[in-house]
Design a protein around this nucleic acid. Structure first.
Lengths: 359, 359
DNA sequence: GTGAAAGCGCTAACAT
DNA sequence: ATGTTAGCGCTTTCAC
């Protein structure tokens, strides 16, 4: 890989150690004092001009705003946070940024918070066993709330947050200890059950399951609920392999399952992303007609699932609704913050990948 | 959609207007003073204990840290920012959070910054013509740098940032005014040229192009470079339609192009995501063999492109390298900050979607 | 409605 | 090596 460099004067300059190396600061940003002086009012008046609903005369306010605008003044939110004890920032730790679901959630979250005038401080904890270090970092910024996506947190930190009144919302992962903090999850049990029911109804009988990360509550819930339904209908437990929520894992797991004798006639994958791999292995490596010769179902209903290349039967993970719920907990439901487990229903989406009667 | 609610005591409580509604704050977080009192030292000593390389005796430091730990003290970074004039936060505005590329970039960015002990404040400007409002928000937090992804910024704001020494790095979008700020882009011109050359070499002659957002510099660069190559080799300009970087748009654009007489024998799409739509329309709606009967190429080399369902010829957008470059500008190259245009080369990836000799 | 003054939690200069 | 002091930029009493 080549890197080309075009243009640019080059001021010689030394890097200030350990900080984001900034340009030479020609001017420090204007302060409320500067504005006050310019407008001929007190610094307190400037503050009031920028505080909605503060008691200030209309023309004083205008005068201030004009002055402020002319020198590009903008209130320093760090100073405000110091006083208010509130930062206007929500912290998010994302355990698996590769997962499209969490990234989609992040986008929705940021949008929703923006609308409410709040902001999102993001930390990626990919590859860390626990989110603790990242969470601590965020706490240093006195975040008003913590959103955990695919991230675990120690009891000590939970206790500390509760003590300081910082709500924790866990996303799509039930709390380990009941009522330790709020969580918003999709209704995976219902979804897995509907998929099981649908597969049986379509006439599939030799079922397979590809697990995600066997440690994750998400994968376990989907699996146990799937199995429970089968069992209650007198169907033998599915053959099983593990895909770790990754493509490579799912490719291999599918190969393993499809090589068995007798071959399973339908495979339920713990998420859509793995189901795509299963479909491709079945179609391109085993030459099977998806639906007719092998049923494949997933979970999440991500964008690609409805594309004709996959046409995947799945259960929609209601990410928008979940985010909305999380936002409403954050913004308007202080009473529920601590010990609420919200389960949002998705929707079953039968598609061609489990249609026996044709491809 | 149903929402189920499980568990939870319910303290009656009123929402503080306009703020993230927090739990009752049982305790405000401990301050350096508290620690100082507990450890029997001055508050300054506490500060020194938490400052790497400060002049403090070893056992004083230990004493302080023990005390701090026992009451869960953590330094308030807002206060620090106030003094230092540096927040340790980089601000990012993402214009199109739906675009997988930018989300991937975000993940990498957050990871890289985390390693450097920095943080990422994220704002989504989806649907806004300019990022200005969001950028202003971020500036209120005195971000140390601004990363713009698919986001435009007014000259006024550029000027203000330069004035305050805040570097702006634009991602995969060249600066409108030369040298207005730093930018990191992929080498789209080279990529588009290689694709054009490859298509000709494979024997395709009646070419088509599907543009992204015709306003975007990315789409324009890819198109103009593609056309320039064809022209210089005596091939007529491609027929053209617009997909706006969206699936629906690309589906329709492909239908339009494939309905023409004579039908183009190859289509270059301004990105992979649109190329998937093109492939699916060609394959499932027009019954064409991809590669043999219609060549399709994209740009970006996202994850799905190498999947057998698409097997898409494309040019890799070197997102990791670009992020690395952006980080190094941010963290270690103050001298280049202002007027550097870095172009990172990707790699041409010929695949089955443009192989004439077979499917 | 407005200004003066106190202080949020911290760092940095200055003493000692 | 440590304590004292003066702010960083703002919000919030408290007088007027």
């Amino acid at each position: 890989m080549k890197i080309g460099i075009a243009g640019g004067t080059c001021l010689l300059q030394v890097k200030p150690y350990g900080s984001i190396a900034r340009m030479p600061k020609r001017t420090s940003p204007p302060s409320a004092h500067d504005v006050a002086r310019l407008a001929g009012v007190s610094q307190a008046a400037v503050s009031r001009a920028f505080t909605a609903g503060a008691s200030i005369a209309k023309d004083t306010k205008e005068k201030v705003l004009r002055a402020a605008n002319s020198i590009g003044y903008r209130p320093n939110l760090h100073a405000r946070s110091l006083i208010k004890g509130e930062s206007g920032i929500a912290g998010t730790v994302i355990g698996s940024p590769r997962n499209a679901i969490f990234m989609a959630a992040l986008g929705a979250l940021s949008k929703g918070l923006s609308r409410a005038g709040k902001h999102l401080l993001v930390s990626s904890a990919e590859g860390y066993p626990t989110g603790d270090e990242h969470i601590k970092d965020l706490l240093n910024y006195r975040v008003d709330a913590l959103l955990l996506m695919a991230t675990s947190i120690s009891s000590k930190l939970i206790e500390q947050c509760r003590h300081e009144g910082i709500p924790i919302i866990s996303f799509n992962r039930g709390p380990r200890k009941a009522n330790a903090f709020a969580s918003v999850t999709s209704n995976d049990r219902v979804g897995a059950r509907q998929i099981a029911a649908h597969l049986l109804q379509q006439g599939y009988r030799r079922l397979g399951f590809i697990a995600g990360d066997p440690e994750s509550s998400v994968s376990r819930e989907r699996e146990s609920s799937f199995i429970a339904y089968l069992k209650s209908h007198g169907i033998p437990a599915p053959v099983r392999d593990i895909g770790y929520f990754r493509r490579e894992g799912a490719l291999q797991a599918t190969r393993n399952l499809l090589s068995r004798k007798p071959r399973p006639d339908a495979i339920f994958c713990a998420n859509d992303y793995m189901a795509f791999a299963a479909i491709e292995v079945a179609r391109y490596e085993f030459g099977l007609k998806i639906g007719r010769e092998i049923g494949i179902a997933g979970f999440d209903d991500i964008r690609e699932s409805s594309w004709p290349s996959f046409d995947l039967t799945t259960y929609s993970l209601p990410i928008e609704a979940m985010i909305e719920k999380a936002l409403s907990i954050l913004l308007t439901e202080p009473s529920y913050k601590n010990s609420l487990h919200t389960i949002v229903d998705g929707e079953f989406r039968p598609r061609g990948s489990t249609r026996r009667s044709g491809d």
